[in-house]
């Protein structure tokens, strides 16, 4: 891929549709913090929004979201968060490219995303903590754990790495899980406006081929007469009904089965 097409691919991700998601994703990142303090957990949960936006708009938008989260925290809470923007950006990129590769569609892929994210975050955040901050950023869960480890191990770098690894494994695991659940719940109508996974083959399916077809069918539907036609789109529901022994398409159970079949494709 040439440099120019790569650049164009990156800038294309920053359409208004994606840009307007970013502050909301930052908000979701920060809601994670509220959530963890409400549940009295010593975690951050500050990458839920970044993960969700990675699924919608791609790696570079996710990276920008991570950066902006740290900038926002630096402005509003404490500038101590600013150098950690580097780890947020890297995590955003890693998650984004993994999601783009389709890893979020399978459970084992989700596990991979979790581990990769935990690893990247551990390494970069620890390096920042040690080299910028000398090992601690104040009285918080990680720093206290680091202090305890330092007494035992007598090595600053190893203590920071260990406490960070432990924290990150738990934190990122829950984060990725919550983000996965959220993305599954997003209405399909909204998701398809962002579809990342090469929808070039969708173009044919999108053809306006039903413009004349269901003119009669609709009139009959409205008049309350059941339709005898079965066009492509109703096919799944019909086949679900037939496999059950030919019950009518009006049966709610069949419609549900039809819907599940479609989503598992």
């Amino acid at each position: 891929m040439s440099a120019r097409s790569l650049w164009r691919g990156i800038t294309a991700q920053f359409s208004t549709k994606s840009l307007v998601l970013i502050p909301i994703a930052v908000g979701i990142n920060l809601i994670g913090g509220t959530l963890s303090s409400a549940l009295k957990l010593p975690l951050f949960l500050d990458m839920i929004g970044t993960t969700v936006i990675a699924c919608l708009s791609g790696p570079w938008v996710a990276a920008l979201c991570g950066l902006l989260t740290n900038v926002f925290l630096a402005l509003v809470a404490n500038p101590v968060y600013l150098p950690y923007a580097l780890s947020s950006v890297l995590c955003g990129l890693v998650i984004g490219y993994m999601v783009k590769a389709g890893l979020f569609k399978r459970i084992w892929g989700v596990v991979l995303v979790w581990l990769a994210c935990a690893l990247v975050n551990t390494v970069t955040a620890s390096l920042i903590t040690v080299f910028v901050y000398g090992g601690a950023t104040g009285v918080n869960g990680t720093s206290v754990l680091t202090a305890a480890l330092v007494v035992a191990v007598k090595n600053i770098v190893i203590s920071v790495l260990s406490s960070s690894m432990l924290e990150n494994l738990i934190d990122k695991g829950i984060t990725v899980l919550i983000a996965y659940v959220i993305v599954r719940r997003i209405p399909k109508r909204f998701l398809s406006q962002y579809a990342l996974d090469g929808s070039k083959d969708q173009d044919d399916l999108d053809d306006l081929d039903d413009l004349d077809e269901d003119e009669d069918k609709e009139e009959r539907e409205v008049a309350g007469v059941p339709s005898r036609e079965s066009s492509v789109r109703r096919g799944e529901i019909d086949s679900a009904a037939e496999s059950d022994g030919g019950t009518s398409t009006g049966d709610p159970a069949d419609l549900d089965r039809g819907r599940t079949q479609r989503s598992e494709r």
Binding site: L19, V20, I22, P23, I24, V26, G27, L30, L64, L68, V71, F72, L75, V76
Partner: peptide
Amino acid sequence: LILASLNVV
């Protein structure tokens, strides 16, 4: 991005 985050969040 800066202003919107400061308002939306």
